[in-house]
């Protein structure tokens, strides 16, 4: 492992315009390796657009962005191999079993058959899914789907995992358990880039950025932000910023 201060995501003056509308305006930030980076903002603040650019799905209008050292303009293929992605929808195939889901996603990332087998056994064991491994995903409770989706997103051992509102619609206890998984991943040196609506979750992040109307209005550790905005909770910070 290299130094802790190594930047895995570097974004500078990133702009994305759709016609006259500017979805992202001059975004500048960096994320360190192994960091849990919270990316907050109200709906329509430009979070999704930013994530799509960082994942190599969309090209920015101008500015610079390096993901794991790869350029979002020219090296999207390399970016894609090095990132994992999980959304609120959990993105599993409901009519396949957990094992088939793992096998499929392992396959599209080009993992070898033996590696997939090994990973499958490990995942089933860790998630306690051995009993339900022949059940279709549609029959599983939401919390299990969420954990399975996270495991699937981590199959190819990406350097960065993008989590787009990964805890939407999940109960508090399951959310807590899910954050434990996130901590473990971060502990192994994987960078977590997470968006969320739950302000209590923002407190779990190492650093948090808050986006308002396409711009990053604040970026620091949760404690410093609370101090800066004289607030007790991240929720207050968020409201003060969002209301301008």
């Amino acid at each position: 492992m290299k130094t802790v201060t190594e930047n895995i995501i570097e974004v500078e003056m990133l702009v994305k315009k759709f016609g006259n509308f500017t979805a992202c305006r001059d975004l500048t930030f960096e994320v360190k390796k192994g960091e849990i980076f919270g990316f907050l903002g109200a709906n329509g603040a430009g979070k999704t657009t930013a994530i799509k650019i960082l994942c190599g799905l969309w090209k920015p209008t101008s500015g610079k962005a390096l993901i794991g050292g790869f350029d979002v303009y020219t090296e999207t293929n390399k970016i894609k191999k090095n990132i994992g992605y999980m959304s609120q929808k959990f993105s599993l195939y409901e009519d396949l079993t957990p094992v088939e889901n793992i096998r499929f996603y392992g396959g599209i990332y080009g993992l070898s058959r033996s590696l997939i087998k090994e990973k499958t056994a490990l995942a089933l064991h860790e998630l306690g899914l051995e009993e339900v491994k022949d059940l279709h995903v549609s029959a599983m409770p939401l919390g299990w789907k969420q954990k399975l989706a996270f495991t699937v997103a981590m199959l190819h051992e990406p350097k960065i995992v993008f989590l787009d509102e990964p805890t939407g619609g999940v109960d508090p206890i399951t959310r807590r358990q899910f954050w434990n998984m996130i901590y473990q991943a971060a502990h192994r040196g994987i960078t977590i880039f997470v968006t969320t609506h739950y302000m209590d979750e923002a407190e779990y992040c190492d650093r948090v950025s808050i986006m308002v109307d396409g711009e990053i209005k604040a970026l620091d550790t949760p404690d410093k932000l609370k101090e800066m905005y004289e607030s007790q909770t991240m929720n207050e910070v968020f409201l003060k910023l969002a209301r301008g």
Binding site: G56, K80, Y85, F90, S91, L92, Y93, Y105, I108, Y109
Partner: peptide
């Protein structure tokens, strides 16, 4: 609809 398309697009495929 299921959101799996996003994941496929983010993958190296």
């Amino acid at each position: 609809e299921m959101g799996t398309m996003e994941v496929l697009l983010v993958s190296p495929l």
